[in-house]
Simulated assay, not measured.
Amino acid sequence: MRIISKHEEFNIKDKTAIAIGKFDGIHLGHRELLSRIVDKKKDGLKSVIFTFDPSPEEFFMGKKMPQLFTRDEKRRAFEKLGIDILVEFPLNEVTAATHPEDFVRRILVKELGAKFIAAGSDVSFGDKGKGDSALLESLKDELDYELCIIDKVQVDGEEVSSTRVRNAVADGEMLLTERLLGDKYSVSGTVQQGNRIGRTIGVPTVNIHPEMYKLLPPYGVYSSIVVIDGAEYKGMTNIGRKPTISEKERVGVETYIYDFDEDVYGKFIEVRLGAFVRPEMKFESIDALKAQIKRDLDAANI
């Protein structure tokens, strides 16, 4: 997958199918957009994601926001879903002030070769977000592109949105989160050296430290699936600070992998979270912790 993050690189020579969006969480609505542009590959069009970096919310509010998908996680997800080109439009005071019609004419059509454009019904772009689906509709015949506007996808009678996904994650409702995303919510990273307490009590674990602004569910224990080198393993994951060991422990994602005893230090892994098992707890002793872990393993190994 080609990644374009500088405006001077906006020179795609191929004809393209472009999906426009914030894509702060790749939920069912986003997947519908992606399926439309990937389907156009059969007609010889390159599939292109057009998103913003930083996100409009971060740019206009002037602060980092908790992320459902980190930049690296989004890149890996888009590539896995068959996207050819990812445009991370550099949002700054100059580019944010682009006239909406100029945005369509110059950027989408002239520089990025759009022959097919897919967007949500609430799409906004250009100066003060004035560009919308009506503008895209009004220009499609003149600029010779096909337009596909996607209505909001609904789950349980409510619209699927990144805000709804964020709320579900924040509440620890991982099964609802999975339904909204169309996939398990995951945390990824490189396996770090831990304090090795798990090995001393017969429960060896792998540890990763999520990026600072990664949105995490409430501290506690979750069933999980761990992806290592493309293979999936059943696991049990604790998210938190390990209060029994140290009150100052950095927030981490620590996973016991069932029937697994390989050295994976330094490897990149993905931890896909399942059902909530219990909240994080502080125990009186290591023996009490060990006994609870054994109960957790039985509970999570569904």
Rank of each mutant, 00 (worst) to 15 (best):
E9I: 02
E9S: 06
F10K: 03
T16R: 06
I18S: 02
A19I: 05
I20W: 02
G21M: 00
K22S: 14
F23H: 07
H27W: 13
L28V: 10
G29K: 03
L33R: 04
L34G: 00
I37S: 01
I37R: 01
D43A: 06
K46V: 04
S55Q: 11
R71C: 09
E73C: 00
F78H: 00
K80V: 05
V87M: 02
E93S: 15
E93L: 10
T95E: 01
T95R: 01
V104W: 04
R106N: 11
K110C: 09
L112H: 05
I117Q: 01
A119E: 07
F125D: 06
D127C: 09
E137C: 11
E137H: 14
S138C: 07
L139M: 12
D141E: 15
Y145I: 07
L147W: 07
L147F: 05
I149H: 04
Q154C: 11
V155Y: 09
D156G: 05
G157R: 10
E159D: 15
R164I: 02
V165R: 00
G189D: 03
V191M: 07
G198F: 01
R199A: 12
H209F: 15
E211V: 05
K214A: 12
K214R: 12
P218D: 13
G220E: 07
I228Y: 10
I228P: 03
E232L: 06
I239T: 08
I245A: 12
E247D: 15
K248L: 06
E249Y: 13
G252R: 09
V253G: 00
E254M: 07
Y256S: 04
I257C: 12
F268R: 07
I269E: 02
E270L: 05
R272F: 07
L273Y: 08
F276T: 06
R278W: 04
K282Y: 13
D287I: 04
K290M: 08
I293L: 12
R295P: 04
D296Y: 04
L297R: 12
